[in-house]
Amino acid sequence: MAAERALDWVAISPDPLDAGALERWARRPAYGAVVTFCGTPRTSSTHDHDVVALEYETEPTLAEARLRAVSDEARRRWPELGAIVLHHRVGSVALLESAVVVVVSSPHRDAAFDAARFCIDALKRSVPMWKREVWVGGSAWSEEGQTIVSARDL
């Protein structure tokens, strides 16, 4: 399910995400700044229960195409970027595990921070992904619903 190019690596993964390994992949001699963002499940819920896990669901081909649109748009806005990693997990994600990892490397930190921020925000608005909140004794779809938009429009 991975789709790897020389400097872009987007994936929808049923396996645990290793943020350290992804960050190492994004480190290159030409780029002096590496920003990593990890999104992890939190206990607070939209359903008044303590969350113990999140279950993510998507259609991988569709979602990977949208991840690639996010990385393409980041490159259009910050042409100096080095590597871009956008990985989203599917299936059950426990507390403290990463549901999503974004890594951006760049010659200097301003573009790395700005592009990483753009990538996670755009990912959350433009990639089809649904999550169920799981608590002891039940589960339900998250009530955070947003309309899907294009990364170019953000």
Binding site: A99, S142, G145, Q146
Partner: peptide
């Protein structure tokens, strides 16, 4: 054709 309810990703 794909039916996409409001998303809650990330």
């Amino acid at each position: 054709v794909v039916v996409l309810p409001p998303i809650s990703g990330g």
